[in-house]
Amino acid sequence: MISESDLKTWVLDYSDPLYSYIFKRVGDDELAKDLVQETFIAAYKNRDKFRENSNPLAWLYTIIKHKMIDHFRAKKRKPTDSLDDQPHIDAILFNSKGHWTQAPSSAFFSSDMDEAERKEFWSFLQLCQNDLSEQQKMAFVFKYMEGWSSKRICKELDISSSNYWVLIHRAKLKLRQCLENNWLNK
């Protein structure tokens, strides 16, 4: 059973990793802080479910993961502006024969980024993630950050497998292009 003082220690010890985790996924500072706070409150309210000797951070991660999924589900239900009148990214990057109109740049990031470049990368990623449609964002986060299978994502988004491949392909192309543009113009 966790006491109030345990909870305080947890906030001091674990709010950073929890914030880092959730901020990368929702891309909004205020929202990320709210979700961290809600996670601690939920942990306290369900304190009888916490087993002594188990890892508190692992338990908190489980809670915040559910909060993230709930957040995305709630957003999915809200109608958003249709982006259908814009040309799709694959119609911009490839010509009618399916060849690149704008080939990927080799000057774009490499595996030996230093600390400063990594920081820059993450701030560009946040920017570019918010450029995706809500559905693309969900697919992207679930696949690349959470490691979900395509089957599970199809079920969560309630889409067919062929829709999924179009969705993830466009999300990937769009995000990559946005990152590259920011990277080359920095």
């Binding site: 305080k8 906030v11 001091l12 709010s15 950073d16 990793p17 914030y19 880092s20 985790y21 901020f23 990368k24 802080k33 961290v36 706070q37 601690f40 990031f109 490499s110 595996s111 990594r118 920081k119 990368f121 993450w122 690349y144 950050m145 490691g147 990559r176 990152l179």
Partner: peptide, 25 residues
Amino acid sequence: ILERLLSDPSSSSQRLSEEDKSSIL
């Protein structure tokens, strides 16, 4: 490369300020 970065939790560590932490408390 990008996928490895995305799935590695240590590749980014945003921090909360002390102020943020006390307001959460």
